[in-house]
């Protein structure tokens, strides 16, 4: 089970302002608070900085590394920004994660060399040149190909984190179930490959989004999801995460649940 902290994203107002003012202390606080709350990786995304994404990515990586030991997840659809972030982050002996590669031909070709060069873990998004998947069958078709290609290209199955691409149930009633079915298939067919997802897409366009996000986290875990991109400082979410993990038998002697309890990590 793995938590990637999602808060350092330039589409969030506080981060946008911190980047504009080069307020490294604000960024560092965000990194440290997520690490303290249990994030295994800190995601860094500055995709909204269209003119200077690479430079901004480097600045963010450097400023986080000054104070925070947590491994980093370099997040961009642009291979150039990924390369810039990885280059800045490689100077220390910590694992790296890349967010993300897809089965789109050009993106696959551009990101694969980075995964290899930095021996990084990689989030593999289930989409290809035909578009985004709608059904479980679409996802399974792309997963079979993408996992096959990554392994054939020398990536260890345990370094692959499949993101099944979660779409809002407000735009398709079966969109939650299609993801769960695909996750079940991948878990069975590729036991060493990990599954990861974000939790806010599922509830887009609906009221009381937090409730839906939390329920979906639990349902996905029961289907085999073993990593999440989320806000680890959301105490209610984390309580359900630790509880769900223990209930499904992924937490020997409930040690993680108890440790989180003693550290006061959740409500």
């Amino acid at each position: 089970m793995l938590i990637v902290g999602e808060l350092i994203n330039s589409s969030r107002e506080a981060v946008r302002r911190a980047i504009e003012g080069r307020d490294s202390a604000a960024i560092q606080r965000l990194a440290l608070s997520q690490a303290a709350a249990g994030a295994d990786y800190i995601d860094i995304n500055c995709g909204t900085r269209i003119e200077d994404e690479e430079e901004t990515m480097q600045w963010l990586v450097q400023c986080i590394q000054e104070v925070c030991d947590a491994p980093l997840c370099i997040d961009s659809p642009a291979p150039g920004a990924l390369a810039a972030g990885l280059e800045a982050a490689q100077r220390r002996d910590k694992p790296l994660m890349i967010n993300s590669i897809t089965a789109e031909q050009m993106r696959y070709a551009a990101v694969l060399p980075l995964v290899r060069k930095y021996k990084a873990k990689v989030i593999a998004l289930l989409m290809d040149d035909r578009g985004m998947p709608e059904t479980a069958a679409d996802r399974i078709r792309i997963a079979d190909r993408l996992i096959g290609d990554l392994i054939a290209d020398g990536i260890a199955p345990g370094d692959i984190y499949i993101d099944p691409l979660v779409k809002p149930i407000s735009t398709g009633s079966s969109f939650g179930r299609e993801v769960l079915e695909a996750v079940r298939y991948i878990s069975e067919r590729y036991p060493e490959v990990h599954k990861i997802c974000g939790l806010s897409n599922i509830s887009f366009g609906l009221p009381n989004r937090k409730i839906l996000n939390r329920i979906f986290m639990i349902q996905a875990m029961a289907a085999g999801m073993d990593a999440y991109i989320l806000d680890p400082t959301d105490r209610a979410m984390m309580g359900l995460f630790y509880g769900s993990r223990a209930l499904l038998g992924y937490d020997p002697y409930c040690a993680g649940y108890l440790k989180a309890h003693r550290s006061g990590l959740y409500d």
Binding site: P168, S170, T171, S173, F204, G205, L206, P207
Partner: peptide, 10 residues
């Protein structure tokens, strides 16, 4: 007015 949500609009 946030009285209707996306599925209802669709």
């Amino acid at each position: 007015a946030e009285e209707f949500f996306l599925p209802e609009l669709i």
